[in-house]
Amino acid sequence: MASHLLKPSSPLPHQTYLLSLQKPVPRRLTVLSLSSSSSTSTTTTTPPSSREEAISQAKLSLSTTLKKPLNNPMPLPSRRLKKLSQPRYRVEIPLVDDSPDSLVRLAFEVFSGLPVTRKGSTPTVLIIWPNATVLQLAQQAFDSVASVTNSDLGSVTAGVLSSADLAVFLAPEASMLEEFRRVTTTLLYPKPVVLFNPKWGFEEEKGFGDGLGSFVGSFDVVYSFMGLEVRGLIRRRKGVVFKCARDGVAAGGEGWLVMVEEEEEGRTKGELKVVSRFKRRPTIGEVESVLYNLMAASSPVTKSVKFIRDLASSVVGNKGKQ
């Protein structure tokens, strides 16, 4: 995923006394890399501690959610049947870096062996890439995977779209939203569609006009992970904003979780604890408020909050380190 600078948010509750000894430090989104480990756990109620575990969790979320729409396809609207809501899902998995190779590698690991069937056979997956350069790399990577077809948004044809059981839009840019909406709502309906690792920050979606914000909001998030860090004068705490659904329902009914590392006698234990829950996706301001208030309980001054959109081994303590 690409990094995005965050505009300063509106003043937070209690921010005055939290930052009373110094000027507020501008908050920005930073990108850290995710290290590998041998973990293969598919636990869906805790954040991943490795790249492999993140992929495993996301594949489980996506495959269980897609099972119903793939095997019980929606009928086309007619005079007797109303137009039903198209199955639309959103997945955000951390990348090692922002290179095309990392994006293609991630997509290959997820969609070359997605554990879902359509009427007993492997469904045909169409992956639509943002440009021809990444498409060329993807075609080489998926050359031996018969169930996956690759195209780019600028050259995808109606024939290719009609032959797919599932369409995946890989890392689209905000500038592609209008065409993305047109293809989804007119050429792919009623087939399920997945928005995978969009290149815009979710806070940017507030500025999407002409109904594009509502369109993006129609995609149900089945897997998302964003690391975060709050710094005081002499120490820092790390945590995550996390959602992992199964069968289309958030694990344990928890929805979105804000979690931070436990502390004991000033030392980080590396275990995450839930400090806040949200039924909907929290805004940056809401997460900041939670973290500032948390730090204020044990420190008179909070220096800054950093948001890390890519998973990092340091986010979850030593568990993600090799």
Rank of each mutant, 00 (worst) to 15 (best):
G285N: 03
T43Y: 11
F142T: 07
L6Q: 14
R28C: 13
G154W: 01
L76C: 08
F225M: 11
V148D: 03
K68S: 13
R80V: 07
V194A: 03
K243S: 04
A250P: 11
P73S: 06
K119R: 14
L32C: 08
K68I: 12
E52M: 09
L34F: 07
M259I: 05
K199F: 05
P190A: 07
K206Y: 09
L5V: 06
T186C: 03
K321N: 07
V287S: 05
H14K: 13
K306T: 13
L6P: 08
F196C: 09
K199G: 08
S121A: 15
F169L: 12
L34W: 06
G248Q: 02
F111Y: 11
E52W: 05
S3F: 07
E264N: 09
R235P: 08
L32A: 11
L272Q: 01
V193S: 06
D210M: 01
V305M: 01
W129E: 09
T64Y: 04
R118N: 04
K59L: 05
Q15V: 14
L34I: 13
A245G: 14
E254P: 00
A107Y: 02
G232A: 08
V301C: 12
E263F: 08
R182N: 14
P77D: 09
T45N: 08
Y292H: 10
Q136T: 10
L135C: 11
S9C: 03
E262K: 14
S63K: 09
T157Q: 04
F307Y: 00
G239N: 00
V156Q: 02
L188F: 14
D143Y: 11
R105L: 12
M176N: 14
V230L: 04
V230C: 07
L114I: 12
L81V: 14
L166F: 03
S102P: 02
D165W: 01
T117L: 15
T186Q: 06
P24R: 05
S298Q: 15
V222M: 03
V125D: 03
S38R: 12
I55H: 06
N293F: 02
A167K: 03
A312M: 03
K59T: 12
S155H: 15
V160P: 00
Y17F: 10
E203C: 09
T16D: 13
P123R: 04
S49D: 04
K243N: 07
L114N: 13
V116F: 02
G213N: 12
P73E: 05
L21F: 11
E178P: 06
G209T: 15
K269S: 14
S299M: 02
L170V: 13
G253V: 10
V168N: 01
A54R: 12
V287E: 05
E179Q: 11
P13H: 10
G159T: 11
R231I: 00
K321P: 00
P123W: 01
S56L: 14
V183M: 05
T185C: 11
T133N: 13
A107R: 01
V258F: 02
G211E: 12
L177G: 14
F208R: 02
G253T: 10
S33D: 07
N131R: 01
G120F: 04
